[in-house]
Design a binder for these strands. Structure first.
Length: 276
DNA sequence: AATAATCGCAACCGCCTATGT
DNA sequence: CACATAGGCGGTTGCGATTAT
C-alpha cells in the first residue's frame, strides 16, 4: 500500500468472466501435466488468456480433484458454524463454496437465531456467536477480527489439516493412478473426448449428492455403485483402464470419501464443464 | 403470462503474508 | 533490512435462475 503495486496482469489483455469448457480443460490438463509452480506464468504456458490469479482461483475452487462439491449436509453446515466460531473468517478448507454458504445461509440463520434468543434472554446474546458477528461487522477488516492477525494456533491447524486430508486422499489417489498407469500425456485427450462422455457427465443427475446423502449407509452404497460405473466410464474415455489386480488394489486402498470427492470434483461445476 | 423480488453462485478485487533477492 | 514478487484469503459484486405476486 502507499506506493501501490503493479497489477498482476494487464487487464486489457486477459479474458474475464465465466470460464469456458475449453479453458477448464486446458487448465486441468496443463496442471496435471506440469503442476502449478508459478501461477503468474501459467496462463501463458497453458495457452490461456487469463490472469494467473484467475487460473488459481478456478483450479482451487472448482477444478482441483480434491474439492468436494454438491449440497451441504447438516453435518457439514454445523462444521462450518463450529469452525467459524473457533477460527472466524478464515476459510482455509474449501474457500468459495463454504464462504458462500456462510454468507448467504448460515450467517443469516445464526443471526436470526440469536435474535430469537435475545427476545427471551438478552444476556444470552453476549455469547460467543453474537460477539463474533458484531466484532466482524464492526471491524473494517474482518480478517483482523480474530486475534488481530492471520496466525492460526497449532491446534487449529491440526484440525484443519485433519479435515483437509480427507479431501487430499482423493487427489492422491488420482495422482497414484496416473503414476501407475504412466499415461499422463493422455490427459491432453479431453479435448477430443467422445462427446457422449461429456453428455453422460453433464447429464447424469445421479451423481449429484442428494441432501443428507451421508445419512444412511445404504444410500452410500448405491451411490458408490454409480460412482464406480462413472469412474469406469471416465477411465475408458481417458484411456486409463486398469487390469483386475490394479482395480483390486484401488478398491482396497480407497475409502469412499476419497473416491466420491475425486469423482464429483471431476464432474465439476455444472456451468464449467458443460459442452459448448 | 409478465414482472418484480429474492436467492445462489462464480468470479473479481484488494489487501495481507511469505519468500526471495 | 528494504524492497519486490507471488501466493493466498476474505469480502463483495454481478448475473442468471428461481420464486412470488
Amino acid at each position: 500500500m502507499g506506493k501501490g503495486r503493479a497489477p498482476c496482469c494487464d487487464k486489457t489483455k486477459v479474458k474475464r468472466g465465466p470460464w469456458s469448457y475449453d479453458e477448464d480443460l486446458k487448465l486441468i490438463s496443463f496442471i496435471n501435466k506440469y503442476g502449478h509452480d508459478n501461477w503468474r506464468s501459467l496462463p501463458e504456458r497453458a495457452g490461456l488468456l487469463r490472469c494467473g490469479k484467475s487460473c488459481r482461483l478456478r483450479w482451487i475452487n472448482y477444478l482441483r480433484p480434491d474439492v468436494k462439491r454438491g449440497n451441504f449436509s447438516v453435518e457439514e453446515e454445523e462444521t462450518i458454524i463450529k469452525l467459524h466460531q473457533s477460527i472466524g473468517s478464515k476459510y482455509v478448507l474449501s474457500y468459495n463454496e463454504i464462504k458462500n454458504v456462510w454468507h448467504t445461509h448460515l450467517k443469516k440463520r445464526l443471526s436470526s437465531n440469536t435474535n430469537l434468543n435475545a427476545d427471551h434472554d438478552e444476556a444470552a446474546t453476549k455469547g460467543s456467536l453474537n460477539r463474533e458477528e458484531t466484532s466482524q461487522e464492526s471491524s473494517p477488516n474482518a480478517s483482523m477480527s480474530f486475534g488481530g492477525s492471520n496466525i492460526v494456533s497449532k491446534e487449529e491447524k491440526d484440525v484443519q489439516i485433519g479435515q483437509t486430508s480427507e479431501y487430499l486422499q482423493g487427489y492422491n489417489k488420482f495422482a497414484r493412478m496416473l503414476q501407475e498407469v504412466d499415461k499422463r500425456e493422455l490427459l491432453e485427450i479431453p479435448f477430443d473426448v467422445d462427446p457422449d462422455m461429456w453428455s453422460f457427465i453433464n447429464g447424469s443427475d445421479s451423481f449429484q449428492q442428494p441432501e443428507n446423502s451421508l445419512a444412511t449407509r445404504a444410500h452410500q452404497d448405491s451411490q458408490e455403485d454409480e460412482v464406480d460405473k462413472w469412474f469406469k466410464h471416465l477411465e475408458s474415455g481417458l484411456g486409463l483402464e486398469e487390469n483386475d489386480s490394479q482395480q483390486q488394489q484401488h478398491i482396497d486402498a480407497n475409502n469412499e470419501s476419497s473416491s466420491l470427492s475425486l469423482l464429483e470434483s471431476y464432474k465439476g461445476p455444472g456451468t464449467s464443464l458443460m459442452k459448448p
